[in-house]
Design a protein around this nucleic acid. Structure first.
Lengths: 280, 280
DNA sequence: CGTGACATTGACCAACTTCAAGGTGCGTGG
DNA sequence: CCACGCACCTTGAAGTTGGTCAATGTCACG
């Protein structure tokens, strides 16, 4: 299969059964806005729908569009409210005192941006867009009133933060105990589930982030990411061509995540036992 | 200095200028409740003080005492509300599908426990006490009413969750980019700051967790933790005797965290540059 | 068709884990 | 009070994973 074929097929699948993009022969490939057709109505409607304190025009005014490499906000910026990602994708990263940056999360439509600012009213992270994207802004005063007037919003906010905490924990576990292969496998499965949740194909999608982003996020060298991708491809677990990725064998991916976690060598097992013993 | 001397001195310092524990010659040492004299009034009073919806007796009823190895709640337990740790210490951990456990956080007086349950109304983590501890329970209905009636509580809750998110990010960065030495140094400094914030000595304290806990938390082998401790001790950066730890040289600890992050070898620098380049 | 950004591949090496053995402190029961 | 067992901790030697370096490949765009 040529790159071109894979590409077009992927794009077709990515946008599902919609005929709008079918038969497109000339399609911008990587490094271009690609995912801005996603639409995040679910969460947004849940939050806003039940609130009478925000009228339509206010909602419309709060929408803004950004492009690749734009920052939504940066470390140190004053916190003014939170954002809902409507389309596109973004990454958030923190900066160590010497300027080294570390990606903490990737965002897709429906995700909340900026909840890191509640603590000190200053953002501790920078959010940068990976492609053309749009967000909906909810300013702090709105948050406060919505919290009181809309149980849906209140629960949504708490749930969203709580969910992030849970996935952070999983991420920490992955970072600290998983092998490179497992990290990548986990990353791909997470992405896949994310796309499925958004009613997009979970088996064929494109990565809106670079290899370097992935490496940084997973705490490994970019070369290792490349090698793991190559290895997975050779084993027919995935097919990857630059940003275009298809998962061919979910079973294997799942077992990679699972296997190394439990039944690797006997040695590891005994070590796990030791750790478990101590956990009491 | 003998172990006994170090021990008694540490205990004296730990409990500050209070004469109650001065001159105690026979003191239970490790593996015994030790920190349950801490008192977390600040946060608690802030939250509760401004609320008229909770009376004194309700507050008193909501207090509970636990012992070492007790679980506050376990993965899968129904979420009924959050807890404020009043005294003692605890750890939270998640469990992978094969039963391996990973510690996500250690808790000290004033910390909130259980905010992981907002998402699905089920706890995704287990909280287990490291020593005799007491908590104050705030049930969900109270949370909801407090959120609406008490701006202090609302902000406190959001700030606490937001703060946790920020420290999770820092932790992820540490886990993925730091060397073993840096991880341990960071861990010790974090502990130290935590104790200082609680008006306890930040330079002499005891670890309420085992080496295995530390290793698990930092994602490294227990032997490595031991070796790093030994190395720090040899370099006169810390003095450690089992659970009793004194930081002798904050400068060095700080520079360890800082140095390796920025100016290690030229090689690493160039890699960082590469990563930075990609972060745009 | 050249340039620059991004990605891949192979060879080498170091940090950290694993394995194995021994040490320390505490509680318990003779 | 001593001896034993247990949990926890330390230390040394061997073995791997994954990082580093360097060179080459691929794609998009002007």
């Amino acid at each position: 299969m040529t790159a071109r074929q894979l590409r077009v097929m992927s794009v077709d699948k990515l946008y599902g059964t919609s005929n709008t993009y079918r038969g497109v022969t000339k399609m911008k490939t990587s490094y271009q806005p690609q995912n801005d057709y996603y639409n995040a109505t679910t969460l947004l409607d849940t939050y806003m729908g039940s609130s009478s304190s925000i009228n339509q025009s206010q909602q419309r005014d709060s929408h803004r569009v950004f492009h690749r490499r734009d920052n939504l906000f940066s470390v140190g910026n004053y916190f003014e409210g939170i954002y809902l990602l409507r389309s596109g994708s973004a990454k958030s990263f923190i900066t160590s005192r010497d300027g080294e940056e570390h990606i903490t999360k990737f965002y897709y439509p429906g995700d909340m941006l900026g909840i890191d600012g509640f603590d000190a009213h200053v953002h501790t992270q920078t959010v940068r867009f990976l492609e053309t994207s749009s967000v909906c802004f909810i300013k702090e005063s709105q948050i406060n009133s919505l919290i009181q007037t809309s149980p849906d919003f209140r629960n949504g906010l708490l749930q969203s933060m709580s969910h992030t905490l849970a996935s952070d924990s999983a991420m920490m576990m992955c970072l600290s105990t998983c092998s490179s292969e497992q990290k990548v496998a986990q990353f791909l499965l997470d992405l896949s589930f994310g796309f499925s949740d958004r009613n997009l194909s979970g088996s064929e999608f494109m990565l809106s982030m670079t290899r370097t982003d992935i490496a940084n996020y997973l705490g490994m060298a970019i070369e290792t990411v490349s090698r793991v991708f190559a290895s997975f491809q050779q084993r027919n677990i995935i097919a990857v061509k630059l940003r275009y990725l298809s998962i061919l064998d979910f079973e294997s991916l799942n077992s990679i995540v699972a296997i190394d976690n439990c039944s690797q060598t006997l040695a590891k097992k005994s070590n796990i036992k030791r750790v478990k013993q101590a956990l009491n």
